Simulated scan of single mutants.
Amino acid sequence: MSKFYDFSAETLDGKPAPLSDYRDKVVLIVNTASKCGFTPQYDGLELLWSKYRDRGLVVLGFPCNQFGAQEPGDAAEIASFCSLTYEVDFPMMRKIDVNGPAAHPLYAWLKTQKKGVLGTSGIKWNFTKFLIDRSGRVVDRFAPTVEPKALEGAIERLL
Rank of each mutant, 00 (worst) to 15 (best):
S135Q: 03
D54P: 12
V58M: 13
T145L: 03
F62Q: 10
A75I: 00
V59F: 09
D24A: 11
H104Q: 00
A143D: 15
F67K: 12
E71Y: 06
M92V: 08
E156L: 00
A76H: 06
T112K: 01
F90R: 14
Q70F: 08
S121C: 06
C82R: 03
F7L: 05
P148S: 03
E10G: 02
E152I: 12
M1D: 12
E71V: 09
K35R: 15
A33N: 10
C82S: 03
L47R: 15
T39I: 14
W49V: 08
S2N: 10
T120P: 10
A150G: 11
A9N: 01
L48C: 14
E77L: 01
F4M: 01
L151I: 12
L159S: 08
R55Q: 15
Y86T: 07
P40K: 05
F130D: 12
F127R: 07
A143Y: 03
A79E: 04
K51P: 06
A79Y: 00
V58D: 02
T39D: 12
T32A: 04
Y52G: 05
K51C: 07
E152F: 02
L151M: 13
A76P: 04
L19P: 04
K15H: 04
P16F: 07
D43Y: 08
T120V: 10
G68Q: 15
E87Y: 11
S34H: 01
Y86K: 09
V138M: 15
P18D: 09
S121P: 02
K51H: 12
L19E: 15
K95Q: 01
D13T: 11
L158D: 09
F4S: 01
C64L: 09
H104M: 11
F130K: 06
V138I: 09
I78W: 03
I29Y: 04
V98E: 02
